[in-house]
Simulated scan of single mutants.
Amino acid sequence: MLSLAYRLKSVFRIVVLTGAGLALVSCAGQYRNHGYVPSEEDLAEVVLGVDTRDSVAETIGAPSSSGVLDASGYYYIATRLRHYGPSEPKPVSRELVAISFDQAGVVSGVERYGLENGNVIPLQRRVTSTGVQDKTFLRQLMGSLGNIGPGDLLQ
Rank of each mutant, 00 (worst) to 15 (best):
L81C: 04
N147K: 13
L43E: 02
A71I: 05
A78S: 05
G21Y: 02
A104L: 06
S72T: 07
G85C: 03
T130Q: 10
S26Y: 07
T130S: 14
A78H: 08
K90T: 09
Y75G: 03
L24Q: 02
N117Q: 10
N117C: 14
T52S: 14
M142F: 15
S129P: 10
N119H: 11
T128L: 13
V46E: 03
V97Y: 03
V107D: 01
Y6P: 03
G149A: 04
A44D: 15
G21P: 05
I121Y: 07
S72H: 01
A104Q: 07
I14G: 12
P89W: 00
L138K: 14
T18V: 07
T59L: 14
E58L: 13
F12E: 11
E88Q: 12
V92N: 00
A98F: 05
E45I: 12
A71R: 00
T18H: 02
G19W: 03
S55V: 09
T18F: 10
Q133I: 04
R139T: 14
V132E: 10
T52Q: 05
V25K: 07
L154C: 06
S108L: 02
D54N: 13
D70W: 07
S10P: 10
R112F: 04
E88K: 11
G149I: 09
A78L: 06
G118K: 01
G109P: 00
G85Y: 06
S100W: 04
A20M: 14
Q140I: 11
G131P: 02
R125V: 04
C27F: 12
G131W: 04
S108H: 01
R82T: 05
S64C: 10
D51R: 05
F12L: 13
P38N: 04
M142T: 14
Y84F: 14
G131E: 03
T18D: 05
G85M: 08
Y76Q: 07
T128M: 10
A20H: 08
P122E: 15
P63E: 01
A104I: 00
Q155N: 12
S72F: 03
T18I: 07
D51A: 04
Q133L: 10
M1G: 06
V120C: 01
E58A: 13
L138F: 15
L153V: 02
G109K: 02
A62S: 15
I99E: 00
G49D: 06
A78W: 15
L22M: 05
R80V: 05
V11E: 13
L141D: 01
F137H: 15
Q30S: 11
G73Y: 00
G29L: 05
Y84G: 13
Y74Q: 06
L22E: 01
E40P: 15
V56I: 04
G149C: 03
I77N: 13
V127F: 13
G143E: 10
L138H: 13
